[in-house]
């Protein structure tokens, strides 16, 4: 199965692991991630305003490119996924906005908001299936207690993201179980790490991040997994008592594709 893939700028730079393990694991599961040609940065956050067009064009172009190939569009980074998904929702549901975007893009083909958008986790759940992943695991992570950290971007706004129950998500816990490990449930798994405000108010993000990592640790977790480079940065920078790794790294490890053979 071939899917269109939007890696995003962070995965090409500081979060190369997140990208590399995602591709390798997908291949092990029979999926080829085909990078969208000439994609541009999603901008990191969705501007929730109806009159902003320019900041949403890179997402629209990526969506249109996937649609043209008749492939679902997959991304791994929580932020890219959030921006692309919210943009797609606006294209589907806000006629005036969609008109302005298509009008601006001019000679390019009009995009109607009908591309299918998957986060990599949704791809695992809905296109591969956790049972199939379980069968493919060669190094089960038996006995590991792992806290899934969702943060905000994967889940909210729930009406738009539609990935999981925003107050009691399961998708990462189900993956952790499929890999043979034990998920740890804790109160702050869907609360914010402080996000971009860390840039000008590091103290705020320190408080928010430590609440998350302490809550995971107090519930017996040995490590935290995330899909978001900014969550990972904030947690680690603020001295998380637990290691924080990308979920794709665990997946690659369990599937036996973490190390590349020389």
């Amino acid at each position: 199965m071939k899917l269109s893939y939007f890696p995003g700028c962070t995965l090409k730079n500081k979060a190369k692991d997140l990208d590399e393990y995602a591709r390798r694991s997908a291949l092990a599961l029979g999926i080829e991630l085909e990078e969208i040609e000439e994609w541009q940065c999603c901008g990191g956050v969705f501007t929730a305003s109806r009159d902003e067009i320019a900041t949403k064009l890179s997402s629209v172009r990526a969506l249109a490119a996937a649609k043209k190939k008749d492939q679902p569009l997959v991304s791994v980074c929580s932020a890219c996924h959030n921006v692309i998904r919210q943009t797609n929702y606006a294209m589907q549901n806000d006629e005036e906005f969609a008109f302005k975007v298509n009008n601006y893009m001019g000679e390019e083909e009009a995009y109607d908001g009908t591309a299918q958008v998957y986060h990599y986790l949704e791809m695992l759940r809905d296109l591969v299936g956790f049972d199939r992943i379980r069968e493919r695991v060669v190094n089960p992570l038996t006995g590991k207690k792992i806290a899934a950290y969702y943060g905000c971007l994967l889940l909210r706004p729930a009406k738009v993201m539609a990935m999981d129950d925003p107050e009691n998500p399961q998708i990462m816990e189900d993956l952790i179980r499929a890999l043979g490990a034990e998920p740890v449930i804790y109160a702050y798994r869907n609360e914010c790490c402080g996000g971009y405000v860390t840039l000008e108010d590091p103290e705020l993000s320190r408080k928010k991040s430590n609440t998350v990592s302490d809550s995971a640790a107090n519930n017996g977790a040995e490590m935290i997994v995330t899909a978001c480079p900014l969550c990972r940065y904030n947690l680690v920078k603020n001295g998380s008592v637990l290691p924080v790794v990308y979920f794709t790294e665990l997946l690659a490890e369990a599937l036996g594709v973490k190390e590349v053979k020389a």
Partner: peptide, 10 residues
């Protein structure tokens, strides 16, 4: 370690 995501978001 600053991720690009942080800079573009800010």
């Amino acid at each position: 370690e600053t991720p690009q995501q942080l800079l573009v978001s800010a």
